[in-house]
Design a protein around this nucleic acid. Structure first.
Lengths: 259, 259
DNA sequence: GTTAGTGGTTCATTATTTGATCCGTGTTAA
DNA sequence: TTAACACGGATCAAATAATGAACCACTAAC
């Protein structure tokens, strides 16, 4: 049910690792017939959401995406100022940042600002859905976001990504209790080995987190010396972005972050 | 024919002036039945391309637009560096800039950087399709873009927007000849009264313009004194953005712009 | 020259989309 | 208070559009 939706779902197969996809590959990925896959692609192409490389004949996300993103920015002006704020913070700490927003039931990457200071950096995939149990952002969302996330925790099996991934609901809840105290979450290689993540909540008008701001550091640069700077930056971002999205910090939220 | 495309076309009714639209208004704008309009909106909403304000029940562009724009940036990395380059230029000249790209047969706004120096500024609509006969960008595209644009000029009636709008094909071709010499185009209130536009081409690898970069100045600040700075900025942008998009300037292209 | 991959087309069958009409609600004006 | 109206949304028979198996043409590898 929903031809339009099925067509749109084609777009989900694009990612950082797979920015161009051919017809046959689309058919394989989606399980659809080549004919119907092609029809969907044609529709998306006519609208400009994808475009075909005339040489390779494979498809990539099209220019309409930019137009729509600009319109989104008009409807929700928070994003553009958030980007600028993140760019400043990136210059300060010299590490990559990513902002994720809770969308329906999942935590989606909304904005990525990569560091230009180091050539060894964490490169985030903007098409990624962040697992709630394995990332700093996810744990942060569990702690400060809508309560249904925590309630749903026991009902679904949590995926294990690395040895450090938390999968036991009890263990996760314990961790959430700590995060509620400190105000920030971290994930040291629990999603991807060698990646340290630090995240803080962004609150909505109802004082419930609507998203998170996170700093991703490669293992080699993650040290006790760098942590204080990261935490002060994170706290400032959490405060500023909450304001930028028209939200309000809860009264109980710490005024600074401690290791 | 094409349900998916019809659904996507719903998105075209969003604009700067109309960032939120209700069901009935959608039905009126599109000429569709309310039931089918609702079905389309539901499909778009499920994908996240639009979202419904739970209070007002009207719809706005959703977060999926951001994700797709980020993916677009991976496929065509030119845009992000273009934004940064434009931001720098905006600081230099203190006026709003917009980059437009030729998409199929029409010139679409792709990126807008508004000035933060003046409170009286030209505010561009990112959802806008630029008329080829009435804007500086359009004339520039006619002069340096693919030749079918010029060929098609006589076949369609050109819309008149203000008293200054060029509508006579012969007159336009004369103007194009001049622009070919100087390298830049201007439009003084020919699209909207009180708006002065200055545009230069961005070339592709085939030395044919794939888009334009333009500076928009409100009448009050458009003077002979400010023109030289605008032209040097414009020329630098034209060169840099051409490089940033992996293109090549034609050998005949002027090395600087003169009034 | 064969094979296996690719992108794309055709057309009868099928399932989905469509729109006139209806419903309940909130707002406005008499 | 009542009446009229516009709104978002739901229903269901009729009409239209989507579907997929098979097929074609082309390219690259062996």
């Amino acid at each position: 049910m929903g031809t339009a939706l099925n067509a749109l779902k084609m777009l989900n197969y694009f990612s950082n690792a797979r920015p161009e996809i051919g017809l046959s590959q689309f058919a394989r990925l989606s399980g659809l017939n080549k004919a119907t896959a092609l029809r969907h692609l044609r529709a998306l192409e006519e609208y400009g959401l994808i475009e075909q490389n005339p040489m390779t004949r494979s498809y990539a996300v099209g220019p309409a995406a930019l137009r729509l993103a600009a319109l989104r920015q008009i409807a929700r002006p928070g994003i553009e100022s958030a980007r600028q704020r993140m760019q400043v913070a990136m210059q300060d700490v010299g590490e990559s940042l990513h902002l994720s927003l809770l969308e329906k039931d999942s935590l989606q990457t909304a904005l990525v600002v990569e560091t230009n200071r180091h050539s060894v950096r964490v490169s985030l995939d903007p098409s990624e859905v962040l697992p709630i149990n394995a990332t700093a952002s996810g744990l942060c969302m569990l702690s400060f976001g809508p309560s249904f996330l925590l309630e749903r925790l026991g009902q679904e099996e949590q995926t294990r990504y690395t040895d450090a991934t938390l999968t036991d609901p009890a263990e996760i809840k314990e961790r959430v209790a700590t995060i509620n105290q400190t105000g920030w979450a971290n994930s040291n290689g629990s999603y991807e080995n060698g990646v340290y993540g630090y995240a803080a909540p962004i609150f909505g008008i109802d004082q419930v987190a609507l998203g998170t701001i996170a700093i991703a550091v490669p293992e080699g640069r993650a040290s006790d010396e760098s942590l204080p700077e990261i935490l002060t930056t994170l706290h400032a971002l959490s405060t500023d972005l909450t304001a930028s999205f028209g939200g309000q910090l809860p009264d109980t939220f710490p005024t600074e972050f401690h290791p």
